[in-house]
Write a protein that binds this DNA or RNA. Structure first.
Lengths: 105, 105
DNA sequence: TTGACATGCAACCATATGGTTGCATAATGA
DNA sequence: TCATTATGCAACCATATGGTTGCATGTCAA
């Protein structure tokens, strides 16, 4: 799970996910055309996305096709964001009250 | 938005959010008791959470109370995760087919 | 007023991170 | 076969990051 958060921390990697979202199954070369960075730079980012299992690769001859795997993102939502979401209104209310108290003092 | 992703990337910072989730409005000192790290180390992490607006502070005398702000997390869900969620089943199906093709070849 | 407490600021350090270049390997197609 | 194409691996570099320590500042309470 930590790998997923770390992988999502870099804007270039989120951009790669966006590119695969627009068109799934792209090769490294395809993705490089959209990124202003060396091929090896892009490959490194993709490697981290693979470790986090946000991207799954399928070899086809000498081409490496990259596919989006939505499962880890779903898990982040279910196990982590959903938790905060549930108490969202209460947290906001607590915060509002604390700010009010501060203004009174 | 990038600040939020970066803030969430570190496990210690996610732990701090968890601590505030359990008990909102804690001071730096309170939070330090639960973290095996120097006070300044914790303060640095909290500073990043503040920049990302995941945590909002309220001064009360010499004490700094930390409150969870659920808004950025909600935004990540709405603007980012929700997007991938929508196409989740389709992405999985595309991936499954690609893996099948690989096995055939 | 003064000592203790809660926090901030700044310097410093080791390691992680993001990027590059150069060369190696393997598949394709003429 | 052989040039081309697609990718991998490794070394290297600059900067970011996560942590520390030491000292400064401001507030509380006796």
């Amino acid at each position: 799970m930590n790998n997923v958060f770390k992988a999502l921390a870099d804007p270039h990697r989120r951009e790669l996910l966006d590119l695969l979202y627009k068109e799934n199954g792209q090769t490294l070369g395809d993705l490089c055309k959209c990124m202003s960075m060396s091929r090896q730079g892009v490959a490194k980012h993709l490697a981290l996305l693979e470790v986090a299992q946000l991207v799954v690769v399928v070899w086809q001859g000498r081409e490496k096709l990259h596919y989006l795997n939505p499962v880890p993102i779903q898990q982040i939502h279910d196990r982590w964001i959903g938790k905060f979401e549930g108490e969202r209104l209460q947290a906001l209310e607590t915060l509002r009250k604390a700010l009010d108290d501060q203004n009174d003092a």
